[in-house]
Simulated scan of single mutants.
Amino acid sequence: MDGAAGFALLGVAAFGAGVLNAIAGGGSFLTFPALVFTGVPAIAANATSALAVSPGYLGSTLGFRPELRALPDALLRRELLLSALGGLAGALLLLVTPARLFAGLVPWLLLFATALFALGPLLTRSAGQDGQAWQTWRQPGLLATAVYGGYFNGGLGILLMALYTLTGESRLNTVNALKNLNSLVLSLLSVAAFAWAGAIVWPQALLMMAAATAGGLAGARLARRLPVTWVRAIVIATGLVMSALFFQRAG
């Protein structure tokens, strides 16, 4: 795809990702495939996509400041450290993964993330039934989830929400606050590792960050009008189509 058409596609995909993330999540189902389809290698596309959607985490985190201030400082410090370590470890794992192996994993990762998104409400609803029994798994689970998020961002929010609900956090706003804060921290560390390794394609990244931010603002307004169930259906359909396309490419 030539330069102008490719950049136009990336701008539209990033704008759409910002809209989706503001309403229901799943923006990486648009940004990552768009980068690959415009000729960016899979590992660089994953790194650039992670940077493109990262500004939205900051705004979401700032929106939940009261909930975060109500949590013990020691707990926040411990969990932020785990998120940072996990995000960095996941990014480094991606950087040492052979490009051909990662390209083969991509359709499976997309399908896994789509399944997580589709089952998200069921996971978070059923997770809270016996939260105290799972409380000891909160921090090991957070570290494992952060590693996954640093390696491949798709479905990260669903995993974090399910983890916190499963381990006994019953306040939905607090769950969302922790999800956004930990996503922000692990994304910052993983993106820093990608940038240090030269894995980010900067012209595309800067365009997509701007477009995703604009999409987030538009999505915040649209969220008041569109039923979330419609948007979730669109995200799931997008994830399935993208998974099928990548399976076809891998074949």
Rank of each mutant, 00 (worst) to 15 (best):
L116I: 03
R125V: 07
L143R: 05
T124N: 05
V241D: 04
A195F: 11
M242T: 09
L94W: 06
W134N: 11
G141R: 03
G251R: 15
T48W: 01
A233D: 05
F102S: 09
A199E: 15
A113T: 02
G215L: 09
S54K: 12
V19H: 06
G56A: 14
L71V: 01
G219A: 08
Y164E: 02
P140H: 12
V191S: 10
N153E: 13
L9H: 06
A91P: 11
L10T: 05
E169W: 11
L85C: 15
L109F: 13
N180L: 06
L159R: 03
S49N: 15
F32V: 04
G131V: 08
G120N: 11
G56S: 13
A177N: 07
L240Q: 06
T145R: 00
G128W: 07
V12K: 03
E67W: 03
A5T: 10
L110C: 07
L166E: 09
A162F: 04
K179T: 00
L166N: 08
L81G: 15
A42H: 08
A5G: 03
P98M: 14
T38W: 00
A5D: 02
G63P: 01
L20H: 10
A115K: 03
M208W: 06
T48E: 05
A89V: 11
A214L: 15
M1F: 06
F247R: 09
I43G: 00
A192I: 14
A237Y: 04
V106M: 13
G87L: 12
T229H: 11
L92W: 08
G87V: 09
G157A: 13
A211M: 15
G56R: 00
R138H: 07
L245R: 14
Y148D: 00
T124W: 03
G141C: 08
A233E: 05
F194H: 14
V175M: 01
P121N: 08
T145D: 01
L166I: 08
L142R: 05
P33F: 14
A44T: 09
N21D: 15
A133G: 08
G120P: 02
P121D: 13
A84N: 07
G239P: 03
N173F: 06
T238A: 12
